[in-house]
Simulated assay, not measured.
Amino acid sequence: MKVSPRHKARELAMQGIYSWQMTGNSVDQIELSIATSNDMKQVDVKFFQDILRTVMLRMDELDAAMKPYLGRLPEEIDAVEKAILRVAAFELVHRIDVPYKVVINEAIELAKSFGAADSHKFVNGVLDKAVKTLRKDERTK
């Protein structure tokens, strides 16, 4: 199955955010590491950079947008799930050109690929609640 350039961008951005969460390395170091260890011809590079850099720059804002819907303390969330939710929060808040259903579906797919056994259920539940507030205008159309 052919993977879309945007899906690949989300996947690599999520991995970069995870790496950043674990190491604290700079965005430039993480971006270089990802770019040199992946075939970037299959990636929407601009979208990848936008996700990675905006999440790192606006982490507190994005975390605050998701916090009411977590159902547990943020520090109790697995690092992979946190990275996936940060990517999704970025898209819900800053990329309204991406339909919320696409954001949720992509996040679920990332959770199925990289998260623990039932991570996709947790991610789906959080995002399903979050879009009711973050994308309420889109949901009423």
Rank of each mutant, 00 (worst) to 15 (best):
L70T: 08
A107T: 02
F48H: 08
S19K: 07
E11C: 03
Q21Y: 14
Y100R: 05
V55H: 01
A117L: 14
V55F: 01
L134Q: 04
K67Q: 15
G16V: 08
M40A: 09
K141L: 09
V131R: 10
A116M: 06
L92P: 01
Y100M: 04
A89M: 13
T54P: 01
E61M: 03
I51N: 01
G115T: 04
I104Y: 05
E76K: 11
Y100A: 06
S37V: 14
E31P: 01
M56F: 11
W20F: 07
D137C: 07
R58T: 02
R58N: 14
L110F: 07
D28C: 00
F114S: 05
V27F: 00
A9E: 09
D60Y: 01
V103P: 03
D137V: 13
K132Q: 15
A130K: 00
D97N: 08
E11Y: 12
L85C: 06
Q49V: 12
Q49W: 04
F122C: 02
D28M: 00
Y100N: 02
R6Q: 15
M22P: 00
L110E: 06
D28G: 00
L134D: 03
V103I: 12
A117K: 15
M59G: 02
F90G: 04
M66A: 00
N25I: 09
D137T: 14
S33H: 08
I34C: 04
G125P: 03
S4W: 01
D39K: 07
M66G: 00
S4H: 05
V126R: 05
L85I: 01
K46V: 12
H120I: 03
M56R: 11
T36A: 04
K67G: 06
F114M: 12
K136P: 00
T140V: 12
Y18D: 01
A83D: 08
F48L: 14
E91G: 02
R86K: 14
I17V: 15
I30R: 06
K41E: 15
S33N: 11
H7G: 00
V98N: 04
H7K: 03
A107L: 05
R6F: 09
K101C: 00
L85Y: 04
N38E: 10
V131D: 11
S113L: 14
L12H: 06
T23W: 11
Q21V: 10
P99R: 07
R53Q: 13
K82M: 11
L70Q: 02
S19V: 12
G71V: 10
A107K: 03
M56E: 12
D39A: 11
R86P: 03
K46Y: 07
M40D: 07
V80R: 04
Y18Q: 07
N25R: 15
D128S: 14
K121T: 13
K132C: 10
V131K: 06
I51Y: 05
Y100C: 08
L134H: 04
S113Q: 15
D60E: 13
S26R: 10
E81S: 08
L62P: 03
M56K: 09
D28Q: 04
K2W: 05
S37F: 02
L70M: 09
R86Y: 13
T36S: 04
E106K: 06
E81V: 03
